[in-house]
Write a protein that binds this DNA or RNA. Structure first.
Lengths: 227, 227
DNA sequence: CTCCTTCTCAAAGAACTTCTTGAATGCTCG
DNA sequence: CGAGCATTCAAGAAGTTCTTTGAGAAGGAG
């Protein structure tokens, strides 16, 4: 019966999408690309392996339709095919956090101890931003800030925070955010700020989740991008 | 630097969840288990391969934490670990439908031609059910109906529909539903009903999506289950 | 206790995936 | 047009996953 064959082929098609995500390096690529587009060399630097291998993983993702490319001069920029890919990626992370037996240990090894009660949720932050009683700091690299950030946030990339800290008001709570719940930049920023006697917390997730929740965002026009 | 190693390990952990779904037979298992729990032999019959192979795939899913088991007498029942797994599965299907180049062709080969304008959305059906001007028929096997169904739906398994058709009122629109958007049972039912001169349409997705949208459901107590 | 049912596990071969290296392609700019 | 850059492709070695077969374990019934 051909129905069985057609059904198997259809479900193999669904499995192809899962296969594209079924490698740690490709998962990292999706996580980085959720911040905005990047060219191959930047991605290779970000995730570790050789350029050729990164290109191979990107082709795999493109083959499954999860990412698309654009050429500008002789660079090729990759970006996620749509916001649905972000939804899939966060559903995957949620299931992993809820059900994968070893994930807690892996997350703790990477993130260090993190006090969950000491984080702001998106809705809390949106309310405090509206009330105007917090300073929000985006600690991602400035290209990511330029590509899109929480409306009203200030860009201080993690490696410049120690130097620019003095320009932050002393009497207001500071909220740092970065790429997402499994990104360390905001944790490091909060630790640094507290060591300097500031009141600081991190947003529980990151910019892609904020944007996906339709909360207010801004981005810089190309000419405003700082180097 | 150990951070790189820890980060790779964490993302390998996320990728493990994707690996669990990265096989067509396991995807089918998830799709069937979204209807309710099943024992190994039923699952093997449903998806095709040998019992030992089905057991192997189920162990793989269990190893990733996507399914859990329960023993009753000497049968072992598998079910999804939580509703989050259904969310992940539908996010995966959505991305596949939106971005996988060949999926349309695969779906058409399995489902045949299906007119999308001729389907009811969940919200439409909920409204019409509230207004009371439709008859809703659950065409899944009766065990699945018993495990949970749309509130007010009547169970007529696909293989009994031709015989029981006369008991449906002639002057009301009939809405059939089954396991989900990639299930054929409701399409076949609509075709049969129309051939008999009835007005019939299918729900665009199925019971798991209805339940996940928190729309009204019912289930039968064990003693009410029909054989 | 012994037999039966149901499910899992182990071994082995085939089929895929991954990663490396080095060569090839395709674009741009002078 | 030719040099130079960014990216991809190809081939091969190493590792992993899938499927089948048959044996093994766990629990229930007689």
């Amino acid at each position: 019966m051909g129905k069985r064959v057609a059904k198997d082929a259809l479900f193999d098609g669904f499995a192809d999408i899962a296969k594209a995500l079924a490698n740690g390096r490709r998962a990292e690529l999706i996580d980085v690309l959720a911040q905005g587009e990047r060219h191959v060399e930047e991605l290779a630097d970000e995730i570790g392996p050789s350029l050729a291998n990164t290109s191979f993983h990107l082709r795999t993702l493109a083959g499954a339709g999860l990412v698309v490319t654009r050429r500008d001069k002789n660079r090729i920029y990759y970006r996620l095919a749509s916001d649905r890919v972000i939804e899939l990626w966060s559903a995957l992370r949620d299931v992993a956090a809820a059900h994968h037996a070893e994930l807690d240990a892996l997350a703790a090894a990477y993130l260090g101890h993190r006090d969950e009660f000491d984080q702001l949720s998106r809705t809390e932050l949106a309310a405090r931003l509206a009330a105007g009683d917090v300073v929000v700091v985006d600690v991602r690299p400035s290209a990511e800030y330029a590509a899109g950030h929480i409306a009203g946030a200030r860009s201080i990339p993690a490696d410049r925070l120690a130097r620019e800290l003095h320009s932050l008001p002393a009497d207001v709570e500071i909220v740092a955010y970065c790429r997402g719940p499994y990104c360390l930049l905001a944790d490091d920023a909060v630790r640094l700020l507290r060591r300097q006697g500031r009141t600081a917390r991190r947003l529980e997730d990151g910019f892609p989740e904020w944007r996906h929740a339709n909360l207010p965002i801004q981005s810089l026009a190309p000419q405003e991008v700082m180097s």
